[in-house]
Design a binder for these strands. Structure first.
Lengths: 190, 190
DNA sequence: GCCTCCATGTAATTGGTTACATGATTCT
DNA sequence: AGAATCATGTAACCAATTACATGGAGGC
């Protein structure tokens, strides 16, 4: 019985679309999948070898430059379907540094809190533009089982939501500050 | 020079509010912070000891049951302010199993894809209710620098957004399916 | 007396990143 | 000739989870 991880699921899903090398896969993890599931080549190469051993992938040496292309096998397809339909997604966002910090904005001066939130707003606004550009430039087609437009839409909605949240939070910290010091301003962080 | 990690930031921010034991902190990481930054007691206890050594926390044995309470020191407050104002948040969502799977919905039958999305919708709708209940029951006050209402609002907006996205995606997979098979139905997963 | 909750720790293992190491091909 | 890119791999390290281990206090 082979391991069943989201990482393996991602590799299976990607090579199911078309045969790819570890190098190709590394680029996908670093671009398209970057905000969903990231992986470095140093993790990818050994995993491909182990999945090949497990009979989930077949391998052929391609081109020059000792490139190795992996394609999915029937066992691999079964495994992919099993992962998608028979297992529940593992827990979601468990590490969000920016949101963690937002618990502690009250330790900052109003100015520092606002600076933090403005930076967040800009960061998300920028990422929103990146996603919108992806979508505009044809966007990900739905060939070969690849429904990349569906998570991309989630990305767009997420960034838009965070921009709105940051706007709201800017009002909120100002409101909290007025409540805290009815007289007015001027205190330092922490 | 001591390590500067979000985990340490979280511990500092929490004990800055009020002195807490490792046990108390573990509960906070497991409830309030669960969807933002999680940590187990086995990670917390050694880190508290190391932060105590670094002079960021002071410790007193409290109550019976060999309970140890940690409070923030001035050095600790400096460190907290530094983390919040001088460092940029580390990269956001990099592991989202559910969204990863949504890249591969095209490998499933329409029925299986819809089942997946309906489950996602329910999962997020449920979490939305949990957050709304938190908010309704007084919600997190803003005492002692604790601005828990601000990330809670993000949580509510996030879950609402994901519910809407799942609804949209249900339409989208149906649309893609119609395009793919103008005639009609009936194909198996993968 | 037994169960549950409070409370703290260490050890083993896993998943993942960073750093190290090498070589081929193409472009300028 | 040299730089950039393609291409693959291993080793060392770190963060975090799971499992192991123990003990006290209070309620039933």
């Amino acid at each position: 019985m082979s391991r069943r991880t989201p990482f393996r699921g991602a590799l299976l899903g990607l090579v199911a679309r078309k045969p790819m090398s570890g190098y190709d896969l590394a680029k996908v993890f670093d671009s398209t999948l970057a905000n969903v599931w990231s992986a470095k080549h140093s993790q990818i190469y050994p995993e491909l070898a182990s999945m090949h051993e497990d009979g989930l992938l077949e391998m052929r040496e391609a081109g020059s430059r000792r490139r190795k292309e992996y394609a999915i096998t029937d066992r691999g397809r079964e495994e992919l379907a099993h992962w998608l339909t028979e297992t529940l997604p593992t827990a979601g966002i468990v590490r969000n540094d920016a949101l963690l910090r937002s618990f502690f904005l009250g330790y900052l001066s109003l100015e520092d809190a606002q600076e933090f939130l403005r930076r967040e707003r800009e960061r998300h606004a920028h990422q929103l533009e990146v996603y919108r550009a992806d979508m505009a430039s044809g966007g990900p087609g739905a060939e070969d089982g690849w429904t990349g437009g569906i998570p991309l839409e989630a990305g767009i909605r997420y960034e838009r939501m965070m921009v709105d949240w940051a706007e709201w939070a800017l009002d909120e910290v100002a409101r909290l500050d007025r409540e805290r010091t009815p007289a007015g301003r001027a205190r330092r962080s922490v």
